[in-house]
């Protein structure tokens, strides 16, 4: 398997995560697709320097989230000005109205968080372990636990506010 094939295989395995990370940091579908392309481009550029100290998935998350921050800088976008209607992943991906409503609710709740909490909660939703979250974010595992319980509380409040 050559380098390109190896890369595509790793990418395919994590493609959904990349799309969702991009959708959390952008405000519409066009912007999201731009960010996905930037992430893939940067991953490809850095693929040679990937040192295998961490798993390929951990490395992909780290690069993707860092590129998302860089994208916020260059696009001069405000962090928390997301219109909910544009936020859904292509709707042919989410067929049911109920699912769509839940996705809106989730996106809106995440948008209320600051960039650090946003990063942590994405990884929590991606089912990453505390150790992996700590490695990607660059904080201790115990700090991840503390922050996550605070973030969960914030999300709970957001959700009950929106539902009521």
């Amino acid at each position: 398997m050559d380098k390109k094939e190896k890369f595509i295989t790793a990418l395919k395995a994590n493609e959904a995560s990349i799309y969702k990370i991009a959708s959390v940091y952008t405000s519409d579908a066009e912007d999201r697709n731009d960010l996905v392309q930037e992430i893939i481009y940067q991953l490809w550029k850095s693929f040679d320097t990937f040192s295998h100290k961490s798993s390929i998935t951990t490395w992909i998350y780290r690069v993707a989230m860092n590129v998302a921050i860089y994208h916020l800088k260059t696009a001069k976008r405000k962090v928390q000005t997301v219109t909910i209607d544009d936020q859904v992943l292509n709707l042919n991906e989410v067929e049911h109205a109920d699912q769509e409503a839940r996705w809106h609710l989730l996106r809106h709740s995440i948008d209320q968080l600051n960039l650090l909490d946003k990063g942590i909660v994405i990884l929590y939703l991606e089912d990453r372990s505390y150790e992996e979250i700590a490695e990607i974010i660059g904080i201790s595992s115990s700090n991840v636990g503390t922050k996550l319980s605070r973030i969960k509380e914030k999300l709970r409040q957001q959700i009950s506010k929106q539902v009521s």
């Binding site: 850095s46 780290r62 860092n66 974010i137 660059g138």
Partner: peptide, 8 residues
């Protein structure tokens, strides 16, 4: 892009 998210 490979450094920890918090550093970025």
């Amino acid at each position: 892009f490979e450094k920890p998210y918090a550093d970025t």
